[in-house]
Nucleic acid binder design. Structure first.
Lengths: 198, 198
DNA sequence: ACAGCGATGTTAGAGGCATTAACATCGGCG
DNA sequence: CGCCGATGTTAATGCCTCTAACATCGCTGT
């Protein structure tokens, strides 16, 4: 067994390798250009090998979705806390959310596409913990004018909507300076709303 | 041409029939459970027949998307104008938008999935004309505290986000009385925002 | 040490789908 | 009234998912 390359029969870490390969293929060619077969080829194994790790194509996509949520969560946590100003932080987290969708649209779509997934196993909200914490602090500071759970859903929905429409309806939501545009869209939701009181 | 059974070779109105069949299949089994072959069978023609009317599978889906936008547009126009109160109307239109997504999630998803579609041919925004008109009247009445186009994008994004997350993350966005929940979520965006001024 | 077993890969093959090529039918126009 | 373009059909290719049967390998207990 001198310079034997890992035995070359059993891969060793195929599961993670498959998920990595799938993510690369998906980011390159979109979800449609993805197939178990192509993923297997890229990982250097036979087309039947993935079935030792995933029940079917959908299960592999679910694993990819988990990765997507994980990365989204990281980005939210990494948003810059400006001076401990939680309103500013909330906006930064929203922008990070949209930025993730724009940079990796296919991954973003898969993460939030729950079709064929066990509704109980959705880890989505868990990834948004950083979001919830910011709102939580704002509520304890008495700065929310609506209940916490409503604020959470409203903020999430708005940011999610901007993200989705940006990657699907680029003509309306993407411009030269998209970041500024997004900032202008999201800010009024936080402070002031759309309609005057009268 | 008395009671001729359409000659039975040439279908006669295959294009529309295919779109109808596709919509039924999609609403029944989701976009994944849809195939040109199954659609052809349902329409009673050979699997190659659709190619006389659509360049490929994607083109048929695009036609389905058009139908989706058309129906969404109708629903927005049909939203009840309560006393000519445009703020209330805006809310009703938003709820109608979400209701459409919940009732026909697959059709909604296809309509807003622009992958493989010519970006120039997106008729989405056109279907939202009713939405824009309401905001337009509000602006002329001096009741918008942000620019019209920003208000349009913010409202659209929020409503779209609620719709998307309702059909994808039902655990967070669906409850016994979902309609009331949605009303509570969308109202603060219009009047007041999330954060207090101080 | 080593036998055997369970995990992980492989090859072979069944069935489904998208797409194209070559042929058939029909209705309308010159 | 015959021809032609539009619309359907059959046949065939190639890719994909998934399953079954077989192969290999490392670990485990003795």
């Amino acid at each position: 067994m001198a310079a034997m390359a890992k035995s070359s029969y059993h891969h060793g870490a195929l599961e993670a390798t498959l998920i990595d390969a799938a993510i690369v293929l998906i980011e390159e060619h979109g979800v449609d250009g993805f197939s178990l077969a192509a993923t297997s080829r890229r990982a250097g194994v036979s087309v039947a090998a993935p079935y030792r790790h995933f029940a079917n194509r959908r299960e592999l996509l679910n694993a990819v979705a988990q990765r997507g949520f994980a990365e989204l969560g990281e980005r939210l946590r990494a948003a810059p806390a400006d001076d401990g100003d939680d309103v500013a932080l909330l906006l930064e987290q929203g922008l990070a959310y949209v930025r993730f969708a724009v940079e990796k649209p296919a991954l973003f779509r898969i993460a939030f596409d729950s079709r064929g997934r066990d509704p109980q196993s959705t880890v989505g909200p868990a990834a948004l913990a950083a979001f919830g914490e910011t709102l939580d602090r704002l509520e304890r500071a008495g700065r929310l004018r609506i209940p916490l759970d409503t604020a959470m859903r409203l903020c999430w929905a708005t940011v999610h909507g901007v993200a989705m429409l940006t990657i699907n309806q680029s003509r309306t939501f993407a411009e030269e300076d998209s970041e500024t545009l997004r900032r202008h869209i999201l800010s009024p939701m936080l402070t002031g709303g759309v309609i005057t009181a009268d």
